[in-house]
């Protein structure tokens, strides 16, 4: 049970963090450096899972992606598959709840990159994408790394929304936080203790890594 939950958690969290990194950077850039209609609305929608109770977020995910959901219905009709009660469902839950943390941190650091550097890059013949990769991204990396680590940690601890959309199936959708809950509920203290220690160690490692990375970056 411990091993299964750990493996599943690492799978869900690494896939979720990769998605959050890519999607989060795109939205951070759009929010920080461009003007368009509905920008504030988009910002609010992306931030919402940060303040919503995770079970409510999970409820909306079911409404959207469940077998009879607004989008899920069509997915199920075409493929016979649904996000409900799968590890992919757990990934979606982890992405949705951790994305706002990534966006908050990386948007702020992308915003703080002085526009003169980007303008200089344009006058040197570079387009938006190359400028982003070679100028904006390296100059904003500290906030971006911080955002990724926060998102990683939030995804690792995700409980409520995951339970709603993916359920609590040992070996299939039971991530570490769910396993801890079940271990405690069934009086399995030893197991709960080990799982809690593993999660704590992972979280400390994440914090240590961020601190170390931001220090080396400050000098290099």
């Amino acid at each position: 049970m411990i091993w299964d939950a750990l493996k599943l958690s690492l799978l869900v969290v690494s896939v979720a963090t990769a998605i959050v990194g890519a999607v989060g950077l795109l939205f951070s850039y759009l929010l920080a450096k461009t003007e368009f209609r509905g920008k504030e609305l988009l910002d609010a929608a992306l931030t919402l899972p940060l303040v919503l109770p995770p079970t409510v977020t999970g409820y909306y995910l079911i409404v959207l992606l469940g077998r009879r959901g607004l989008i899920g219905y069509y997915i199920y009709e075409v493929t016979g598959w649904s996000f409900a009660f799968t590890w992919e469902g757990a990934v979606v839950a982890a992405v949705v709840v951790s994305l706002p943390l990534m966006i908050k941190a990386s948007r702020a650091s992308i915003e703080s990159v002085g526009p003169q550097y980007e303008l200089a890059s344009y006058t040197l013949g570079k387009g938006r994408f190359e400028t982003f990769l070679r100028v904006t991204l390296p100059l904003a990396r500290r906030g971006i790394v911080a955002g990724l680590v926060l998102a990683f940690a939030r995804a690792l601890g995700e409980f409520g929304a995951t339970l709603m959309i993916a359920g609590n199936i040992p070996g299939k959708t039971q991530t570490m936080p769910l396993a801890i809950y079940e271990a405690v509920a069934s009086g399995n203290e030893r197991q709960a203790q080990i799982l809690a220690l593993v999660l704590t160690a992972l979280s400390i490692a994440a914090v240590y890594l961020t601190n170390k990375m931001s220090r080396t970056q400050a000098h290099g």
Partner: peptide, 28 residues
């Protein structure tokens, strides 16, 4: 901007802070 081929020396230089002198000059 990028298609105008206009060299611009900004008041505050706007050198890329994460690149060496050579890398800055190479960039364009």
């Amino acid at each position: 901007i990028r298609e105008r081929q206009v060299g611009f020396v900004f008041q505050d230089y706007a050198l890329f802070p994460h690149m060496t002198a050579t890398e800055n000059v190479c960039y364009g």
